[in-house]
Amino acid sequence: MSGDAERRFTRGLVEVRAAGTSRTIGGYAAKYNALSRNLGGFVERIDPGFFAKSEGDGWPEVLARYNHDDNRLLGTTEAQTLRLVTDGTGLDYSVDVPASREDVYELVQRGDVRRSSFAFYTFADDWGMSEQGFPVRTLLSGSLVDVAPVNTPAYLDTSTGLRSLAEKAGAELDEVRHAADENALRRFLEKPPATVIDLAPSGGQGDPHPLVALRQRRAELLQRRTP
């Protein structure tokens, strides 16, 4: 598991789901298989099985926090004031906003806060290329930390993803970071060209390639053994 938590946002809207005393808001914190925007030389997609471990464990200690702020707690899975559901689209959340956070409920109700985000640790990922030849990181499994309605969604830090690519490619992290700045990460994902063995005579000296010489020697031996 990566030592650093990562944050991503979804283009799905956060919305009011119940009024009155419950003041429930919610939306999709993550959507599966949707390519992200350019994260700095690569894009990401979330595999449908990414949250399976957290879901199977009962979503332990997952929080809902406004703008991922510890001082703006909205609900928790332990208190069942935060409820999480996965479906064919992604990870959906509903949180009952406390009276002390009435401003958050009102901002969502008015449409001032429209996006959601989630924080996570990555257990496993994979790298490949899109049909357009752009590097793609696929998040395969991980642990959910929190979900959050946010003012300005942003990809805050992609260093963990670049570290993952560096490890898979056997490269230095600084080298991968420099390539990301140059939009040149694809060189770490492209297979090296196959080695071609030149069977033609070398250097114009008239000496055959060793493999050719070996075949010729075998042919001569066979001819000698033939009565």
Rank of each mutant, 00 (worst) to 15 (best):
S2L: 02
G3M: 05
R11F: 09
V14I: 12
A18N: 03
A19Q: 03
A19M: 00
R23E: 06
R23D: 02
N33M: 08
S36F: 01
R37L: 05
L39W: 10
F42Q: 00
R45N: 01
I46S: 02
D47S: 14
L63Y: 03
A64M: 08
R65E: 05
R65Q: 09
Y66Q: 13
D69K: 12
G75D: 10
T76Q: 03
E78P: 06
Q80I: 12
R83M: 15
L84Y: 07
Y93K: 00
V95D: 12
V95L: 07
V104L: 02
E106C: 02
D112V: 07
S117D: 07
F123G: 05
A124V: 05
A124G: 03
G133C: 06
V136S: 00
L140R: 14
L144M: 07
P149C: 02
L156S: 12
S159G: 08
G161L: 08
S164C: 06
S164W: 07
E175W: 04
N183I: 08
A184G: 00
F188W: 12
L189M: 10
E190S: 02
D198C: 15
L199M: 08
P210R: 11
L211T: 13
A213F: 10
E220N: 08
L222G: 13
L222Y: 01
L222M: 00
R225N: 11
